[in-house]
């Protein structure tokens, strides 16, 4: 009986981003990453130049490195990974 390697199905990230690109553009860009099926975001704090947001990414076989690259490309930074779910 072959067993599939566990796949990354859910990530909750704490992200610091500038006001632009706005949250809609930001989440749209993340949803284009391989394996991502659903992206939701909640603004935690708004500062003079930045927003702190909690992003929940769900899907199948999410490539975390690609997610991190996309976050960087959009001018933001991953502050912490707050929740991870792997599925068989």
């Amino acid at each position: 009986m072959s067993k599939h390697p566990p796949s990354l199905a859910r990530l909750v990230l704490d992200i610091l981003k500038p006001h632009v690109p706005d949250l809609i553009d930001f989440c749209r860009a993340l949803s284009a990453v391989d394996g991502v099926r659903r992206v939701s975001a909640v603004v935690v704090e708004v500062d003079v130049e930045t927003d702190t947001v909690k992003i929940t990414i769900e899907g199948r076989d999410i490539d975390f490195e690609k997610v991190r690259e996309k976050v960087k490309e959009m001018g933001a930074a991953v502050h912490s990974v707050d929740e991870v779910v792997f599925e068989q």
Partner: peptide
């Protein structure tokens, strides 16, 4: 404000 370099960003 971000404490990161943004040179390769959109």
């Amino acid at each position: 404000a971000m404490l990161v370099k943004l040179e390769d960003s959109v």
